[in-house]
Amino acid sequence: MQKALVSIAVAASLGLGATAANAAILDDVKAKGYVQCGVTGGVPGFSAPDSNNVWTGIEVDFCRAMAAAIFNDAEAVRYTSLTSQERFTALSAGEIDVLSRTTTWTMSRDTQLGISFVGTMFYDGQGFMVREADGIASALDLSGAAVCIESGTTTELNAADYFAANGMDFNTVVFVDQDEVVKAYEDGRCDVYTTDSSALAAERSKFANPAEHIILPEIISKEPLGPVVRAGDSQWFNLARWTYFALLEAEELGVTSANVDEMLGSDNPAIKRLLGVEGDFGTPLGVTKDWAYQIIKTVGNYAETYERNVGPSTPIGLERGLNALWRDGGIQYAPPIR
């Protein structure tokens, strides 16, 4: 009986603690032959079923990139649809290997939940949508505007802060439900609709005539969304992190899924290192030396996955903005591979 109690206690503490004592996640993943990836229940552009009922999205592509790096096969991924309440438990209990589910990177989550944020796949933040006919080009022109907001959200507080900080006055038109807010904006009861910019874009795509509405360039809050892994396994953490960096590095060096085979013969030493032609950066990560080649070949670089899932040519239609590379005016920046 006592033995049973002890084993239950040990089991519980293991589950709760998610500690370094565990076997390496990478070995487990290799043994089972797939990456278990925690995704949303369906957020367009991030993780959602496409018309063939296959998971797609920028966050799904991250999991596929990890699978490509490990197995040379981007399809070696299984998806677990998670609610926002159960996502961290599922991760620390080992039900999933990586959580890629519109999760905002905050200090308390990073330091208190036994999890580690890998990086920021997508810099989201609160934005404003206005009618194109109103001729507004910047949020600073919004003084005196009527703003449609969902009540009781940080959105409301952020907007109040922003208008106060810029010495502008505004009228709020407050609703309890997101759908009501959108309807009110559509019916012209207010000039501006504000919420997270990716949600703005998704809502806009549902309008009868999306082109009549523009999303202003200003972003007034920080919502860095990124993949998360269990804390304590540095090898797995590094693999996840460098998968993300490899996507960025590939874009920076101009390596795409289309030209990656030509690039193998490139004289640029940075490209040679990225693709494993020169040096071996894969083995320390626990994968093969052509890991980044496999990622780019099957998933593409960051720009490709962005354009394919949330970029201007998709119904979501989000400009790169903050998510552009550092040299293009954004803040996506990968340390050098060397």
């Binding site: 229940g41 959602a48 649809s81 159960e86 998704a202 119904p315 979501i316």
Partner: peptide, 26 residues
């Protein structure tokens, strides 16, 4: 059962309502 992330009939409909952007209409 959507609570445990399973997509039963209703949840499947809801998911497509939210994500099938090519079918968005009033």
């Amino acid at each position: 059962v959507y609570i445990v992330g399973m997509k039963d009939l209703l949840e499947a409909v809801k998911t497509k309502n939210d994500t099938a952007l090519e079918w968005q209409s009033a």
